[in-house]
C-alpha cells in the first residue's frame, strides 16, 4: 500500500484528464451501442501503460476507431463541446496503414497529452483514428471552428509534429459542414 501511494506521488501528472474510447462497427446495433469508454488516465506513466497494452491501430479491423478526448467530452459531433468545432483531417492511403499509421497516431497522442499547442491547448477536444478499408483517417478535434487563430496555430504545429512535407496540404473541416455532406464533398474551412 505504501508503495502504491509512493508511486502515485512520483508519477508525472498530465495537464488534462484524458479518456480512451473504442468504437467497433456492429451494424445490427445502434451507433451509440458500438462506442465504449475504455478508461481514463491522468499521468504520463498511465498513458504508456495503456498504450502498451492495447492493440496497435494498424491491427484493428476495418470499421473500428480509437478516440482520445478530454474527460467529459464524448467523441461525437453532438457533444456540446464539439458541436461548434471541427477537425484537422489526415487521410492516409491504404499502404500507409503498414508504414505510417501507428507512428502518426502516437505522435498525435503525444501532441495532445503533452499539450503541444501553446496558448491554444484549451481549444483541443480530442483526436480520432478511423480504420477503414478505403483508407484510414486521423483527426484532431477542436472546439471552435470560428477561432481562426487557434485553429491555424494548432494546424501548423500538428503538421510540423507529424513531419509532413510542406508540399502536403491538410484541411480543417467544421463538424457542422461534415454532418450535412458526405465526406468527399465537405469543403475545407482552413488549410495549412
Amino acid at each position: 500500500k505504501e508503495m502504491t501511494a509512493m508511486e502515485k506521488v512520483m508519477k508525472n501528472p498530465l495537464q488534462s484528464r484524458w479518456a480512451l474510447w473504442f468504437f467497433k462497427n456492429v451494424k445490427s446495433q445502434p451507433w451509440q451501442c458500438n462506442l465504449r469508454l475504455v478508461t481514463a488516465f491522468t499521468t504520463v506513466e498511465d498513458f504508456w501503460a495503456l498504450h502498451t497494452h492495447i492493440q496497435l491501430a494498424s491491427k484493428l479491423s476495418s470499421g473500428c476507431d480509437y478516440s482520445i478526448f478530454k474527460d467529459g467530452i464524448e467523441p461525437m459531433w453532438e457533444d456540446s463541446r464539439n458541436k461548434r468545432g471541427g477537425r484537422w483531417l489526415i487521410t492516409l492511403s491504404k499502404q500507409q496503414r503498414h508504414s505510417d499509421l501507428d507512428a502518426l497516431w502516437l505522435e498525435t497522442l503525444l501532441c495532445l497529452i503533452g499539450e503541444a499547442f501553446d496558448e491554444y491547448n484549451e481549444d483541443i477536444c480530442g483526436a480520432v483514428v478511423n480504420i477503414r478499408a478505403k483508407g484510414d483517417k486521423i483527426a484532431v478535434w477542436t472546439r471552435d471552428a470560428e477561432n481562426r487563430d487557434a485553429v491555424t496555430h494548432i494546424g501548423k504545429v500538428y503538421k510540423e509534429r507529424l513531419g509532413l512535407s510542406s508540399k502536403i496540404v491538410i484541411g480543417y473541416q467544421a463538424h457542422a459542414d461534415t454532418a450535412t455532406k458526405s465526406n468527399s464533398l465537405t469543403k475545407n474551412k482552413f488549410v495549412v
Binding site: 508525472n12 495537464q15 504520463v44 502498451t52 497494452h53 503533452g114 499539450e115 503541444a116
Partner: peptide
C-alpha cells in the same frame, strides 16, 4: 503551472519497466 511535456520527455517513459 501548465504541464506541457515535449515528445522526447514523453517518449523517455515508453519502455520503463514500471509501465508494462
Amino acid at each position: 503551472g501548465k504541464k506541457q511535456y515535449d515528445r522526447d520527455f514523453l517518449l523517455s517513459f515508453q519502455y520503463m519497466p514500471a509501465c508494462v
